[in-house]
Design a protein around this nucleic acid. Structure first.
Lengths: 155, 155
DNA sequence: AGTGAAATTTATCTAAC
DNA sequence: GTTAGATAAATTTCACT
């Protein structure tokens, strides 16, 4: 694994809040020259320490103000069934986040929707029509205390 | 709310995957001039459609390879208790994501850790020493099928 | 190795239309 | 919305510690 020094950490903490800072602004933060900052960021990106650089889109602004956390249990925890469900997650725009977990549930999803009716339609399509699903439990998000991601967008 | 046209949506879908594309690259994608792309992105940022621009840091690369999903129940769902817990989430670097939800749990957290022992220490500090907490249930993340966020980093 | 300064390349911003 | 010129930023080169 890549060794990170103080400057790397300072850079990462800066850009994971805002990656549009200029090298000059970063230079002030980490007490290095702009050139050094750029070189280090380039290295961090090349080595995969920085996985991606993205814009966080407001779910509300793109018409998806409702989020749900869904705990999903599969009928059987068999490799092919698990893999099939992972693929379904990847192919489904409404599912923002998917975790495969141990414990009470098999998967935890974060699903966005236009409204509750929209979500109900989604559950019919995504859960009830899937024989691999034993059951699911929905929790409606009332407040996002931390975090931001990429959202499906339609006009 | 802001009206988004086809070009806005195309821009958003591009930058939420990669916000380091140049205006020229974006121009090709959305069939507009580079200047038009810049103007639109500036507007989208000013209006809050784009909430933030961030680098996604690899949790593994910064020494936090383990993630847990935690369902938290509070002793009582009273406004001041809820607010206090929200503040605790915000002040705790290990908690990557926090949702306040309706349903079986009151909060759902995504917590990162260096290893299981590190997580246990965290639970002692964060849960057992907090009298507002009725209980919590941990699920260990085996695979992240979708998503990426900001992570706490230490050397 | 990693840094920093100056020159070059490249991208962005500011007009004009 | 576009095109062209001015401004600013990111890369590259190279000398230095």
């Amino acid at each position: 694994m890549t060794e990170l020094d103080r400057a790397d950490v300072a850079l990462l903490e800066a850009v994971q809040r805002n990656n549009r800072l200029t090298s000059e602004e970063l230079a002030k933060i980490v007490n290095l020259s702009p050139t050094a900052c750029q070189r280090r960021l380039k290295r961090l990106r090349a080595e995969g320490v920085i996985e991606a650089d993205v814009s966080i889109v407001s779910p509300r602004a793109v018409g998806r103000p409702v989020s749900m956390i869904v705990l999903v249990s599969l009928e059987r925890e068999r490799a092919d069934i698990v893999d099939r469900f992972k693929q379904a997650i990847r192919n489904t725009r409404e599912v923002m986040i998917g975790y495969y977990v141990t414990g009470d549930a098999d998967f935890i999803l974060v699903v966005t929707a236009r409204d509750m009716e929209d979500y109900e339609q989604f559950t019919r399509r995504f859960f009830y029509e899937n024989p691999d699903i034993k059951g699911f439990k929905t929790m409606v998000v009332m407040d996002r205390v931390k975090a931001g991601f990429a959202f499906p967008i339609d006009v």
